[in-house]
């Protein structure tokens, strides 16, 4: 399942981060690597970006960026 399909408030484990570009690299550097648990916290007022929580901190990203992240069902 793609991270953007994960309902707000739900937690799931990252399965893979697809693609080889600046965004996926940055995501991985920020700790979004396979195996880590992420929780979708909220979306911004205009529906984008979203906030997720992982490794004890909050990370914001655009939905287009979050689409690279696949999480377990």
């Amino acid at each position: 399942m793609i991270l953007t399909n994960l309902p707000i408030g739900e937690t799931a484990k990252v399965v893979s981060v697809k693609g080889n570009n600046a965004v996926t690299k940055r995501l991985m550097e920020m700790g979004v690597v396979p195996g880590v648990a992420v929780k979708v916290v909220k979306t911004a007022p205009f529906g984008d970006p979203i906030e997720i929580r992982l490794r004890g901190y909050s990370l914001a990203m655009r939905k287009s960026e979050a689409e690279a992240i696949e999480v377990s069902e």
């Binding site: 940055r26 995501l27 970006p49 909050s58 990370l59 914001a60 655009r62 960026e65």
Partner: peptide, 12 residues
Amino acid sequence: SPPPPFVMELPP
């Protein structure tokens, strides 16, 4: 330039 990554920490 490609849209810059927005990926950004929301610090406490």
